[in-house]
Structure formats: C-alpha cells, structure tokens
Design a protein around this nucleic acid. Structure first.
Lengths: 200, 200
DNA sequence: ACCTGAACACCGTTCAAGT
DNA sequence: ACCTGAACACCGTTCAAGT
C-alpha cells in the first residue's frame, strides 16, 4: 500500500464539491439547497463531504467569495489611462449582462445577505472591495494625470461612488427583472461622464 | 356564547406575531430564527401561529415588505421644489444612520436576497420602487420648472440613478461596518450636486 | 372558534463500521 | 487514509384533542 495517498486528492475533492455546490446554489439558492443535493450532484456521500468542509456555511462562503471575486476581476481589465469611460461602460455592460440570468442575480443578492450575518465572510468581501476601489481610484488618477478626465471629486470619492452605483443598479436590475440591461448601462455611463468629466 | 367572536382578534394576532417576528429577525436574521423563537416571543403556540400565517416565508415577506416600505416612506417628506439637494441629503442621512445598526443593515440585505428567490415578493417590492422613483422624478421635474436645478439627464434617469446609488452606498456601508455614515452622506450629496447641477 | 402540544417529515451533522 | 450510510438532533408544519 502507498505510504502517501494521492496528495492532490483533497484539492480535487474540494473542487468537485464546490462545483456541485455552485450548480445547486445557482439553480435553487443557498437555503433551498440541501447537503444531500450537493452530495448527489458531486456523487459523494455526506460523510465524505464533511471530510472536506466543516459546515454548509463554509461551502456557501467559498462560493460567495468566488462569485464576488469574479465580478471584481473585470476591473483588472480596465485600461489605466485613456478610454476610461469606455472601459467603465464595458465593465457595466458585462456586469449587468451577467445579471440577466435570474440565478446569477439571485446569487448576488444572497451573497450580500450571507455576508451581513457572517462577519468573517464580510471581512473577506470587504478586503476584495478595498482592493477594487484602490484599483479604480488609481486608474482615475492616471487618467487625470494624462489629462483625459477632469473630475470634480477626488479619485477615491469618484471610485467609491462609481462602484457603489454599479452595485446599486445591479441590485435593481436583479429585482425588477423586466427592465433591460442596456438601459442600465446607458445610465451608468452617463453617471461616469458626469462624475469624471472627460475631455471634449 | 357569542355568535361572533371578537372580530378584531385575527388582526391583533397577526400584529402580535409580526412584532415578535420583527424582533427575532432583527436579532438573528430570517434563517436563524425558528418558528419556535417567534412563538416564544409572541407567547403563542406553533398551532396558533399557523392559523394566521400559512408558512414562515409569508411572515418573512410581510416583514420584508414593511421594512422596505419604511425606507421609502422617507421620500414622501422630500420637499418638491426648492431645497431638493438638502432634502436628498437629509434622506441619505436618515437612511444611512439606520444602517449603523448591524441588525437593520443585515435585514436590508436579507430582504433583497429573499426577493431574489421569491417572485411575488420581488413584484411587491418593485411596485414600491416604481412609486418611489416616480415621486423623486416628479420632485426633480418641479425643481427644474422652478429653475433651481439644471440636470443634464432626464428627471427619470436622474431619479433612477440617485435611488440606485442610495441603495448601493447603503449596501457597502452595511458590509464595511467600519466606515462611517457621514462620509457616505457626503459622497451621496456630491453625486446629487453633480447630477442635478443646482443654481449657484 | 380558537388553541395546545405531541407527532411527522426533512435536513445538517456525526460516527461506527467498512475497504 | 478514505469512504459509506444509518443515526441523531433540530426545525417547519400538521392535526387530534381540548376549551
């Protein structure tokens, strides 16, 4: 018998469980998904699942953090100097397009609710958020130095405002399912223009 | 024996149950609150509770709708013509001050999550939202006619943007508990100024 | 008519037993 | 070392029995 079992097994199992969980959460939500659902989807027994995660809340937190990280990863593609307005518009477009899927939209709202009751998750999300805001703030600063925008606010305030509004519009979009994403994008764009005041 | 029992009893019982539920939800959240908790707080048995509400979800929906209605009721106090910026600032101040209570903040996030999975609740909240937006839109229109603001956006777009941002900033405030409400108010105010462009 | 509280079904978690 | 699946505790909901 092997002295050490496959050292990659734990990582594989965790990934397998998380993928199953993501699928179930997306379809039914955090609360309505049972451990049995996840086990069925992952083809694993409850006992095995609890070898890799201590509680259902831990699985939720992992998925929530990942969902949020993905949403914020789009910020990295923001060009730093010119085309800031276009970059932000594109960011909004992809964010809002994602929310047209009802499951994704519901998941977003549930992530916030979960964080509001789970201080550890809230802290993790806040850390991501601070980073995202710093990134946008830096992009705005660069654009100011390049002379392509003339915001009346500090880069920090402008960044905080834009990110808050991005989330706020996303929320309304998620709840008022009938209104379309393109109108939301148009509104966000006009906010960016009025806050950042681009040249010409 | 009375041919008709106290005709106000049902209404009283419902109110009694809802008050108990509100207390529990605020302290522990929708999910962590059990029917037994509510029954204990309301000094009533589970059987009696289910005479007045079909499911726990119905109780949640009632509280969620009420919480949201309260948040939006502040809009009614918005003066219609002059002092629009000050009125909006005051609105933000009271909204954000409420969120400094962690329980209220968590409840707000949970309301959204609940609505995202409950189409009926979503519809009820959306109706409130449409009304709130119409009200703000009308206030902006009145201010435009009075010549006190010169927005570059239509009143509808400006109203939608302001309300979205109000929610978005509130969300971040709820999750990043360390940052203070007054800074959030300041940011919202500068948004209002840049979007509405008041005279002088 | 209204209520109680035991009973039921379901779900998160554990653990003895298997390989 | 890793897994299975029955068992346990807990919670939403029902219902027979009381007044």
């Amino acid at each position: 018998m092997p002295r050490l079992a496959d050292p990659e097994l734990p990582a594989r199992r965790r990934a397998q469980i998380l993928e199953a969980a993501r699928y179930c959460f997306h379809a039914r939500g955090f609360r309505q998904t049972t451990i049995e659902d996840i086990c069925g989807e992952a083809r694993i027994s409850p006992g095995a699942l609890y070898r890799y995660f201590d509680t259902k809340a831990d699985i939720i937190a992992a998925i929530a953090l990942d969902a949020r990280a993905q949403a914020e990863a789009a910020l990295e593609r923001l060009s730093t100097a010119e085309g800031l307005i276009e970059g932000l518009t594109e960011l909004a477009r992809s964010a809002f397009a994602g929310l047209e899927d009802a499951g994704d939209a519901a998941l977003m709202a549930e992530v916030w609710a979960e964080a509001a009751r789970d201080p550890l998750l809230a802290k993790a999300l806040a850390a991501r958020d601070v980073e995202a805001q710093a990134r946008l703030s830096a992009a705005i600063s660069a654009a100011v130095r390049a002379g392509s925008v003339y915001p009346a606010l500090t880069p920090e305030d402008a960044a905080a405002l834009l990110l808050s509004t991005l989330d706020g519009i996303g929320l309304r979009l998620a709840l008022r399912r009938e209104q379309n994403a393109s109108e939301a994008v148009r509104r966000f764009r006009s906010l960016a223009v009025h806050v950042l005041k681009p040249k010409r």
